[in-house]
Write a protein that binds this DNA or RNA. Structure first.
Lengths: 228, 228
DNA sequence: GCTTGTGAAGTAATTCACAGCC
DNA sequence: GGCTGTGAATTACTTCACAAGC
């Protein structure tokens, strides 16, 4: 297995990429449960997907399975990580140490995936120089130091946790400092120069999606979407 | 405008529903900026969508626009809120007061959208009876009191912030207590009985999507998706 | 026997393009 | 002139179904 992987990037469906993360998460669970191999059927089952879907998704990136056997869990995890770019750790910075920022600093879910938050920035003088409970190794610094930190720590991605009203301006500062990818928690669409990527996570929006389903579930025939 | 709205639910594309939340967010911004009407072109522009897309999405729910003019902002906001079920406030509970749970309790983004977190639960005796900085009106209670609270406070949705290892079990408890919709932050797929809905938000997964883009952006031809 | 990988078929979503209205 | 709402055309995505491998 594990062909040189055609990696014919240039045409990979967005939904496929999103599912890749879910496959990885599930594979890590399966690994812990002790199984050495897994079939597309099993993998699809837990995620509410057809076996064909799983096979097609993986086939975009290479031939990782063995007919009659399935996929070797350890090897597939390695492949999916490589595809997602998480086969190596990433240093991450966090900008905006408000309620949400503080929480993310002490959230352990990132480190488990090899995402290390190594620096935090804010422009509030009262915060600068302080640390946050649960993440006392990270000293909050002034925004002025962002440029420098990006270079010294090879920061490519950052978490944006500032209010919507300043999100666009701060995002531009981050990009100017050399950040290439922003995960934004601001309730706002960002317009970034080509070359910079952003993904928005608006927690209230996800709750709205839930209330939509509750409010409109009669004979809705809604097709799953399963978790995100 | 504002026809009785056919609301021919039963066939509304998932992507349309997800965009609805983004339209609403943008409309709220536009309202603040003072404009009385907005065209599908304008609305699409900020979100990276075509005008046709915006019109088609809205047309699933009724005829809200006026040819030659566009959409009346206030009226459209009202309609979209009604569709999403957020034309009235929702009481929300939070289960699992760890790092992330604490943060969400003091996060103001929910309240701005009329989602009121009115109760928090945990099974750690050290937490029960205490409150959390920034949300001192919410006393953390034992899981035993969940049933009761669901009834008394008419709780229909809840935020699940427990570790993945216990997420499935706790989710089942919530559903048993009468919760109908769960927004889960656990790194895990939930399997819930029919009648209960869940949406998963795995923060690490979103970061992975970002590193995928950074690692694979050469001649990728990736179609936007714009923020989420 | 079970399973992958993949063309072909089918379904879903987006964009085009234009009649009709302000 | 600018705009909506919508069928038609197009593109994207998913599922089917099966040859080939274990």
């Amino acid at each position: 297995m594990s062909q040189p992987s055609k990696q014919r990037t240039g045409s990979i469906p967005g939904p496929t990429v999103r599912r890749l993360s879910l496959y990885l998460r599930e594979l890590e669970n399966i690994l812990e449960s002790g199984a050495r191999t897994v079939s597309s059927r099993q993998l699809g089952q837990v995620l509410g997907l057809t076996d064909a879907q799983v096979r097609k998704d993986l086939a975009y990136f290479g031939q990782f399975g063995q007919a009659g056997v399935g996929y070797e869990v350890v090897a597939l995890i390695r492949e999916v990580r490589r595809i997602l770019g998480t086969d190596h750790p990433w240093n991450v910075c966090l900008v905006g140490v408000g309620n949400l920022g503080r929480a993310l600093l002490s959230y352990r879910g990132f480190a488990r995936k090899q995402f290390q938050i190594v620096a935090a920035f804010d422009n509030d003088p009262k915060l600068i120089g302080r640390t946050v409970a649960g993440a006392d190794h990270i000293i909050i610094r002034s925004m002025d130091e962002l440029d420098d930190a990006v270079r010294r720590m090879e920061l490519r991605v950052g978490l944006l946790c500032v209010p919507a009203s300043v999100a666009q301006a701060v995002a531009e500062q981050m990009v100017a400092a050399g950040i290439e990818g922003i995960l934004s928690f601001a309730a706002m669409s960002l317009a970034l120069p080509a070359g910079a990527e952003s993904i928005g996570v608006d927690l209230a929006v996800h709750l709205e999606q839930l209330t939509y389903r509750l409010s409109n579930r009669d004979r809705d025939g809604r097709r799953g979407e399963a978790a995100s």
